[in-house]
Design a protein around this nucleic acid. Structure first.
Length: 198
DNA sequence: TCATTAATTCGCC
DNA sequence: GGCGAATTAATGA
């Protein structure tokens, strides 16, 4: 879900451009804007005590991010980092609340997607903890595929690097790669010139 | 196309 | 299971 671009522009949305690796906001910062992706890919991450990256979520076109913290008015618990060249629209806090007030359907949509995201995360965390590498990756891929129409086996190309998959499941890269290879052997997925199909 | 950098894989502990 | 080195892929000049 997303707010229509024309609505965002009608309240003086600012268009911003980022390169891969650029921060859009940082952990601990106070939320000031509602952000929506026009194009590109954004990840929400944080770093564990050992310095290992944990990716909370990877978002692409039309997704919004950081909205729950904006509504709450609490500091961000994660960083937002562009992983590719990206274009983002943002509107200020006041404009955002005004939009919600003026357009109840936007409020409902927002509420619904927020609930979906929250529920997804809760389910994933519950399914991932205590499981071995292969099961974790399978749960993650199941969830990503749920959003797709085509449910056929091997029809879904995983749009992430192995590193990203590892950081999304709390595995190390090597463990993720080894697990992925075993999964290929067990015909849970196939690998076609490096790309994973599930 | 070549050079640089990032991602992946492999051998070893 | 993770480190460092070797290989390969992606990116940019």
């Amino acid at each position: 879900m997303s707010i229509q671009e024309r609505l965002l522009l009608s309240v003086e949305a600012i268009e911003e451009h980022y390169n891969a690796g650029d921060y859009i906001f940082r952990e601990e910062a106070t939320p000031q804007f509602y952000y929506q992706i026009v194009s590109g890919e954004i990840k929400l991450n944080s770093y564990k005590e050992d310095g290992k990256e944990f990716i909370q979520n990877i978002l692409s076109d039309n997704a919004c991010f950081g909205e729950s913290m904006l509504i709450l008015g609490k500091p961000y618990p994660v960083n937002a980092v562009a992983t590719t060249k990206s274009t983002v629209l943002k509107i200020g806090r006041d404009q955002f609340f005004q939009l919600l007030k003026d357009h109840p359907h936007i409020f409902l949509d927002m509420y619904k997607t927020l609930s979906e995201k929250t529920s997804e995360k809760m389910v994933l965390i519950q399914k991932i903890t205590g499981k071995n590498a292969e099961e974790r990756l399978m749960e993650l891929m199941n969830q990503m595929k749920e959003a797709k129409e085509n449910k056929e086996k091997f029809s879904f190309e995983i749009p992430h690097t192995r590193q990203q998959l590892a950081s999304l499941t709390g595995l190390s890269i090597e463990t993720a790669i080894r697990a992925i290879k075993r999964m290929e052997k067990n015909e849970i997925l196939i690998i076609k010139n490096g790309k994973i199909f599930y």
